[in-house]
Design a binder for these strands. Structure first.
Length: 423
DNA sequence: TCTGGGGTCCTAGGACCC
DNA sequence: TCTGGGGTCCTAGGACCC
């Protein structure tokens, strides 16, 4: 059965940078870096920026001189924009095959099973061109009989210009050649720790990993590594997940723009996160049964280090920001201890489940009123911009607010930000 | 001076039960 | 005094992903 499976992995090149470029063509052919929240690290780099030596995940301040000398453009991450562009890319891919798995914001698997007779390379090229034309985003395509091989093909297509953006690994002989040249650390599912273990055993390429006996693979890396070895050998073990699995947890965590040491400031930031978490839950019609609040100091700075957490059950499970705030305060009190310079706080909700429909609550605020009120808040914030309405406990001074000095407009999701073309 | 955020899966080990 | 064996559930921590 696994023999006739066929997967494509389509992945946006330097996705965040490409999104910015769609709306600012002046960024094309120049070094561009998109920075993480708080303008801390480089999380997406244009080819030109990579050539300058700016590393993935590296703190941007390290490169200040380089950035100035080469006129590198810096952008604060604008996830609202990227999320919307991602939807557009996926809508385009759906015109090629109905089975799409949105694996991450910039990558999707496309189920091409049953199409093995086609000119796959040509089909891949068509995908590339259509996505480019309809959305402005450049992508690469990897094709293979398993997800892991499609992923690997995609990495090859991206690295080696000779492939012109499409790498088809359906042919066994060709595949074996490619695997021999592919570093084991770049295989999907092999992280830093596994790579070290494997290379110590002389397993330094994907081909060597594919030769690893299954029992040894399991001993070394549990069922996960065993499955990966099978996949590299063309045996499909990982199915398409076209319906996104129910979320089990959700989190909102942020670094502060500057360190915080009072409980009042910490609690303000927590209140802000709770408002966002509530929004997330309501968007997906979920309620949460458990909450954890944490805060910690920076391991990059001197001074006493601490990581504080506080967790509580939420009963009854809810998505009402007001109830979540009550629980969050108790959690935060437990997490906080004075005398430290905290640089980050976060709110995590677990034990998520679908909102019970029309179920009367014995104790509590009256389900109906809560739903109507929260919907009103969400509608206002969607229409007039995030944080038009917010919990008072969030405060207004917000000394802890994160830095986002170079934020682009929400070109596609906010009416006032839509670009204007003059002809 | 300045170092992101948000997930999932798996296992080991302890608590508890019969 | 000797102290079985099997099962479930929960949690913490590690590893991985983008």
């Amino acid at each position: 059965m696994s023999a006739d499976r066929l997967f494509a992995l389509v992945d946006g090149n330097n996705f965040y940078v490409s999104c910015e470029r769609v709306f600012r063509p002046s960024l094309c052919c120049r070094p561009v870096v998109v920075m993480s929240n708080n303008d801390g690290c480089a999380i997406s780099r244009s080819e030109e920026a990579k050539l300058l030596g700016i590393g993935m995940g590296e703190p941007v301040f390290k490169y200040r001189a380089l950035i100035e000398r080469h006129g590198v453009e810096l952008c604060s991450a604008n996830f609202t924009l990227y999320g919307d562009m991602s939807t557009r890319v996926n809508e385009t891919l759906r015109t090629f095959a109905p089975g799409i798995e949105m694996y991450s914001i910039d990558e999707s698997f496309v189920d091409l099973s049953g199409m093995a007779d086609r000119d796959l390379k040509g089909y891949g090229r068509e995908m590339r061109e259509r996505v480019r034309r309809w959305t402005g985003i450049p992508v690469c395509v990897g094709i293979g009989p398993t997800k892991a091989l499609a992923k690997l093909g995609n990495a090859v297509a991206k690295k080696n210009k000779l492939f012109a953006g499409v790498c088809d690994l359906m042919d066994r002989r060709f595949r074996e050649q490619v695997l021999r040249l592919f570093p084991v650390g770049d295989v999907w599912g092999v992280g830093r720790a596994k790579r070290r273990q494997l290379t110590a055993l002389g397993i330094d390429t994907a081909a060597r990993l594919a030769e690893l006996p299954l029992g040894q693979a399991r001993a070394l890396g549990t069922v996960v590594l065993e499955r990966l070895v099978r996949e590299l050998n063309g045996e499909s073990c990982l199915e398409m997940e076209t319906v996104p699995a129910a979320r089990k947890s959700a989190a909102v965590t942020r670094s502060f723009g500057q360190p915080v040491n009072s409980f009042a400031e910490l609690m303000e930031s927590v209140a802000q996160h709770v408002a966002r978490v509530g929004e997330k839950l309501r968007q997906q019609d979920l309620v949460a049964g458990e909450m954890t609040v944490f805060t910690h100091t920076s391991s990059f700075r001197g001074g006493p280090q601490r990581c504080g957490t506080g967790a509580r059950r939420i009963s009854p499970a809810t998505s009402d920001t007001r109830l979540l705030l009550q629980v969050a305060r108790r959690c935060a009190e437990k997490a906080y201890r004075g005398g430290y310079r905290y640089i980050k706080s976060g709110v995590i909700v677990d034990d998520l489940r679908p909102r019970p429909a029309g179920q009367p609550t014995l104790f509590g605020w009256g389900e109906e009123g809560s739903i109507v009120l929260m919907k009103a808040v969400d509608d206002i914030n969607r229409r007039y911009g995030a944080d038009t309405v917010f919990p008072a406990s969030r405060g207004t001074a917000r000394s802890w607010k994160m830095r986002q000095l170079r934020l682009s407009p929400r070109y596609t999701t906010r009416i006032g930000d839509v670009p204007v073309v003059r002809a």
